[in-house]
Simulated scan of single mutants.
Amino acid sequence: MKPIHLLVALLFSFLSLNVQAAGSAMNEDFTNLIALSKSAIETGKGNDTAAFLEKVNLAIDAYKAQEKETKSYSIHLPRAGNHLKAALKAAKAGNIAEGVTDLENAIMRIKR
Rank of each mutant, 00 (worst) to 15 (best):
K89V: 07
G94N: 10
R109A: 12
F14V: 04
L7P: 00
A59E: 11
K2S: 15
L77E: 03
K71Q: 12
I60P: 14
L53D: 01
L17S: 15
F12A: 15
P3E: 11
K111P: 00
K68G: 14
V8M: 13
N105D: 05
K2T: 07
K2W: 09
S16V: 07
I75S: 14
E69Q: 09
L88K: 02
E98P: 05
P78N: 08
P3K: 08
F30C: 00
R112M: 15
D61E: 13
A51I: 02
N27K: 12
N27I: 07
E69I: 11
A35F: 04
I4G: 00
L53Y: 04
A21Q: 10
K45N: 08
L103W: 06
K111E: 12
T43H: 05
E69T: 10
E98R: 09
A51K: 01
E104K: 08
H83V: 04
E104M: 01
F52T: 09
T101E: 15
L58F: 02
S24G: 08
H83S: 08
A86R: 03
L53G: 09
G44W: 00
K71N: 11
V19M: 05
G44P: 04
F30G: 00
L7N: 00
S16G: 07
L53W: 03
A91H: 01
P3V: 10
K111A: 06
L103C: 15
D61A: 05
T43Y: 09
K111I: 00
N95T: 10
A80T: 10
K85T: 06
K2I: 12
L33K: 00
V8A: 11
L36Q: 06
N82H: 09
A40W: 00
N47M: 09
D61I: 13
K111C: 03
V19W: 07
N32T: 13
A106L: 03
G94L: 11
A25Y: 07
F12L: 15
G23V: 04
G44H: 04
K68I: 07
A22M: 15
T31P: 04
I60H: 01
L6K: 11
M1H: 13
N95C: 10
G81E: 14
N95G: 06
I60D: 01
